[in-house]
Design a binder for these strands. Structure first.
Lengths: 225, 225, 225, 225
DNA sequence: TATGAATGAGGATTCATTCAT
DNA sequence: AATGAATGAATCCTCATTCAT
């Protein structure tokens, strides 16, 4: 059983490719790649924090310090931008540490680290996976992309569990449940600003989550009727 | 430990007070209460399934077979309608069986029943609790109502766990985690139409969930480091 | 020269035919005439104070303690109600004292009395003639009625001036000017809540207005080049 | 006594910065200033002629040959547009001839010139001051602006009268009365299309008005009791 | 490449009016 | 006569997108 996939969930400072340095004069430097990246970053944050519908393209452009039309130029449409963000979300998994310890504790460590106020700066300090679960926005193509991305992520979880102790079917189920537990916690944490879970570093919280994760992932669990 | 609150989640009664019998000619029957109820029902479904922003008041009115402006007449605004739906969601809890068996199995039974394709007809066959977690729409007042409703629900979960075996603080934490597990499963189930969890009646699914729930709720769990 | 017409402008407490006595239960007594009168009175006030467009029929009905539909029943439409109010305005002139002293002082006395905060209770303490001059509301028929009413009123002023000292043409011109002076003062007074004219009883104000009125009405004025 | 302020009332210059040349194909020339000016001009006319409420933003946009949403782009809202028009009205005063002959005749000349069918083309051939007196539309902020503009205009009249012959208080009263006379005449003229005052150039009309104005403004008037 | 002006579709809401009771 | 539920047209405004420079 390997649980490395969850390693992606740790806080990772991303390479600020070309942050919209404030103080710079209005006239943006003509650099397509940087502009594109800035727009993408701004979109990630706003989509994650406010949701797709409540985000306007003008807000994204303003955040990025770019002109609105460039969204259409580089991403075709607002939906295209969402698709790019979703793809980005999937790609976040690619950067995971290749080798991961396979213990429930690791999973939970990653989860709890992701709840930290400083985690996920690129996504407005929200777990990007919530983007895949919350408001079902976008057109048909985007919805499909979202679904496929979600499937890929869940499969990744399953793959890490897969081993000689269980078949694929069972691994997929356990992976999905583990994913559900994680996103459930992240989602509730995100929805309740007054911190339902109290101190994120509380030993009890960690113990309970670890136990629950173990119950889901451990095939040799005793006491199971 | 009592877990009765979760019994509410299986409440799928649907008193079709005055369904808009199709085939009838135009000119709605003049019954304010029925109209209001129809609008509320239609809103519940669309808000839950499509989200607040992607639902237009005209769609709701069309679903209800009523005139659009009656939404404003009866609920003041689209936001007021959302508030009514949220309140309804909270009130669903009030109809719970007064005393419930306090076993994790009961919680999971309720959860799994809620995943059934025929469950929650009023909410478009989606768990209404998702309405409290997904897209953060509405104006300030509605957002506050949403938050308070969510808090109330979580507290209800906690109250059912509270007992002589743990203090309030701990009960609240365990309740929140249980709630997170449930909504996480419901959310993932809702987002992936091709049924990630396979057969909802599968014994393995039930066993894993029950174990996880027990890990969260049982204070006397052995083998906890 | 007679100026009696202006006598109509004095403050006159109207017969409260059936004031919507508060405290009475909802169910209105079934009395068509009284209801009609109440609606008319309410409309007079709101149209005069807030203007036609900014007044809703529901507000009028609420003021009158009557049901909205009765406006259409008794007056055909909102426009019909306005027409009735305009007619009423014209009829106010009918109740004038048949014989009036023909001095500019009388005209000005009436005008100043009309500026008093307690004057014109039926019209929200505003000079009803403003209704004929301000916002050009209503459909074509109503606009025509308004115009005809206005013409009638101006002619009435002229008639009071007519005499052996001048021909009809000249009387009409002087009457119109006198009317313009009066309504100009009333209009400005109405538009500036902080009382542009200071104390309404000020001797200077009365003297200046009387002189101006005299300049308009007196055919034997000396010093006219 | 100086009456120069009234000189502004004859200001009927109209710099057609970029008239929507009819006959040109669709696709408006991309000139923000010109578009803004066109919208403002169209609004001035419709607000003055038809009043605020009876004017729709679409009508204004159509008049200006511009897209409706540009009203919101450039003025924020219909109310913002009204505010701009009111400000414009106030600014009209700024362009007055610095020094004016201080005779009642000048005031009346200006007034009568303003009654000419060709006067005030920008305001639909209506005296723009009527905009400040007629239908009290707009939200609270706009109502306040209207009131302040009106106050400013009246004070301007007063200032032109102020001199060593009278104190401020008295000047303000006389200024207000002069303003009332002027707007009263303009208002009645505007409300009665069949020309109540007959020929605008009639010597009698001019004489009567000049006498009335003199009665209001001249502190050395003989024959005053 | 970048800008910002212009566009048009769509959305919530208000309101006079009609209709059934 | 009176009630209030239902209707639909109309209005302001927002927003993604396109176009010309």
């Amino acid at each position: 059983m390997r649980l490395g996939a969850c390693g992606i969930l740790v806080n990772m400072r991303l390479h600020e490719s070309s942050a919209p340095t404030p103080g710079e004069p209005a006239g943006r430097e003509r650099n397509a790649d940087a502009t594109r990246a800035d727009l993408l970053r701004a979109a990630k944050r706003r989509f994650t924090v406010y949701g797709y519908e409540r985000t306007t393209v003008r807000e994204i452009a303003a955040d990025a310090g770019a002109n609105v039309s460039l969204i259409n130029r580089y991403f075709g449409s607002k939906d295209g931008l969402l698709a790019a963000v979703l793809a980005e979300t999937a790609h976040v998994l690619d950067g995971r540490p290749a080798e991961g310890a396979a213990h429930p504790e690791t999973v939970i460590d990653d989860l709890l680290a992701g709840l930290h106020p400083d985690a996920w700066p690129e996504f407005g300090h929200q777990n990007p996976l919530l983007l895949l679960l919350r408001d079902p926005a976008g057109d048909a193509a985007t919805a499909d992309l979202r679904r496929r991305t979600l499937t890929a992520v869940v499969h990744r979880f399953a793959a890490d569990l897969d081993g000689d102790d269980m078949d694929d079917e069972e691994a997929r189920l356990r992976g999905a449940l583990l994913f559900a537990l994680m996103t459930g916690v992240a989602s509730l944490h995100s929805a309740m600003p007054d911190n339902v879970f109290g101190d994120t570093d509380s030993p009890l919280l960690r113990r309970l989550l670890t136990e629950a994760a173990a119950a889901i992932t451990d095939p040799h669990r005793r006491g199971q009727a």
